[in-house]
Write a protein that binds this DNA or RNA. Structure first.
Lengths: 112, 112
DNA sequence: CAGCATCCCAACCGATACTG
DNA sequence: CAGTATCGGTTGGGATGCTG
């Protein structure tokens, strides 16, 4: 359970799932789309998602090689609760940031 | 946005919010309930949740000291999307674990 | 009881270089 | 193009000891 939450809660995992929701993408397309992810992390995260059955990996034995990643039905079903969480964050982001400012402000005041 | 997801997606944060959903708890009660969390991580995570406005911290100046942690309305509203995610994991846990076994099995087979 | 400070090891992750 | 391998800095987090 914790392991699964670790996968799901992972920053890159979520971004990859989001980006695949519109259709399959190639390795390099993902890397270009996600912005900030290193090749290493993309590989590692994709392997993890594949292992958990969230994405499928299809190799086209052409030259140059071409590999497509797509959401499985399981991965697709994950989008729903994840989107709910994303929506919640967007709705409450302002409140959270204000709370942070207030909290940090107190600390400064207390330090003086 | 990523920072918030980091908070929310954090393993301990979720567990704490879950455990507080039935009512306020003291520091030591949380530590006993959560099982596996170190004092350090409990303190740190609670501070983070407090900073983000998800939990409130109430000190009773008794002897011995008593500190109660409770969900704020904001923290309480977070339970809804988080529970949705938790339910999803529970529902699909079997499928995920089987996928893992299959994946790991392939690797072993390929190595031989 | 609640919690801060310190030390210290392990895991993570980015950068780089190399292969089929 | 789509990776694997390796190195090194950074961070996470446990263990311990000390305070109000």
């Amino acid at each position: 359970m914790r392991e699964v939450l670790a996968r799901v809660g992972d920053k890159w995992s979520i971004l990859i799932v989001m980006n695949l929701s519109d259709g399959p993408l190639r390795f390099s397309e993902l890397q270009r789309t996600i912005d900030g992810i290193s090749q290493r992390m993309l590989t590692l995260t994709l392997r993890g998602l594949e292992r958990d059955g969230f994405v499928s990996r299809t190799v086209y034995p052409t030259n140059p090689p071409k590999v497509e990643y797509a959401l499985t039905p399981l991965g697709d079903s994950l989008r729903c609760p994840v989107n709910a969480l994303g929506d919640w964050v967007q709705k409450n982001l302002a409140a959270i940031e204000e709370s942070r400012r207030a909290f940090d402000g107190e600390k400064v005041a207390a330090a003086e």
